[in-house]
């Protein structure tokens, strides 16, 4: 049978394609518009409040919500630094153990294999647990039981629990993509396993590990629930790790729910959004830069 191409059918096909593409186009535009609306609304509303004075004065406290946001910026930086420096060694260390040591050991030890499967599943589950659960855990353990009170330390420890799954998973994936040939090359030179991991495998996995860390920084900056129940909400500058404090996200929440200064909440949200955007751009830049450097392109 001869397959004929009829003009009617050709026109029909083209119409279907036009409708389908039109629908897809509409989806894309709608999504972008909603995004632009949210971000644009915050940026325009918040932008009106933002000036150097707002960024550099302390919040006044009280129901009026007067003052600026200076201490919340500093507290956010403190908390991010504390959380990351707690979670990074632990998370990367766990990832190295899982990929470099456990993978081998579990082939000979059944019990270890089962334990590892459970802990891997645990890590996966933790990544999907609502953050307020981490908050409750942190509140029960660090704030009450260990008597750290509402403090940077309690918040940092709880925050570390929150981001550990992210760091472990991204680091594990990064370590697994390091070619076997690097490991063999290093071992064949008489380097020990530790030297191989520390000097060859880990540097090669660095772009992925750094991406995981920056993602976690974003997570900490954006997090509200965990710190609401572990950091307290004092708008003063923390004196040490046992002081209470208020991050930018908490400040937005406090201003919006407890004061009349909705405009100031928007102003703080403006700074938050800009920070997150910068972080995400830096991920793209850093991972490209690191990858290019290891490939010898500059």
């Amino acid at each position: 049978m001869q397959l004929e191409i009829t003009t009617e059918n050709l026109a029909y096909q083209k119409t279907v394609q036009k409708i389908a593409f039109g629908g897809l186009w509409l989806c894309g535009v709608l999504v972008l518009m909603m995004l632009a609306w949210v971000v644009g609304y915050v940026l325009i509303q918040g932008g009106q409040v933002i000036d150097l004075k707002f960024l550099t004065t302390k919040p006044a406290g009280g129901v009026s919500g007067e003052g600026g946001m200076s201490t919340t910026i500093v507290t956010t930086i403190y908390l991010v630094t504390l959380t990351i420096s707690l979670a990074t060694p632990l998370g990367v260390g766990a990832a190295i153990y899982l990929t470099e040591y456990a993978a081998e050991a579990q082939k000979e030890n059944r019990l270890l294999a089962i334990l590892l499967q459970i802990s891997r599943a645990g890590v996966e589950t933790l990544a999907g647990v609502p953050s307020i659960i981490f908050g409750l855990f942190g509140f029960a353990l660090f704030v009450s039981f260990m008597k750290f009170k509402f403090s940077l330390l309690s918040a940092g420890l709880s925050g570390a629990c929150l981001i550990l799954p992210v760091i472990i998973r991204t680091s594990e994936e990064a370590l697994l993509t390091v070619p076997r040939a690097y490991r063999e090359g290093s071992l064949a030179l008489g380097a020990t396993k530790w030297q191989t991991i520390w000097q060859v495998v880990l540097p090669a996995a660095m772009p992925g590990v750094v991406t995981g860390i920056i993602l976690s920084v974003g997570r900490i900056i954006a997090e509200t629930a965990v710190f609401w129940v572990t950091l307290g909400g004092s708008y003063r500058l923390p004196k040490d790790v046992f002081s209470s404090g208020r991050t930018m996200s908490l400040h937005v929440y406090s201003l919006a729910t407890e004061t009349r200064a909705f405009d100031k909440a928007m102003g703080t949200a403006f700074v938050l959004i800009i920070t997150i955007v910068i972080l995400n751009l830096s991920i793209t830049y850093l991972s490209r830069h690191l990858a290019a450097r290891s490939m010898g392109k500059n």
């Binding site: 070619p179 040939a181 690097y182 090359g185 064949a188 060859v200 540097p203 090669a204």
Partner: peptide, 12 residues
């Protein structure tokens, strides 16, 4: 010492 089938210099 050993030289492998595919050149495997480290990314250094």
């Amino acid at each position: 010492g050993m030289v492998f089938q595919r050149p495997n210099p480290f990314p250094k």
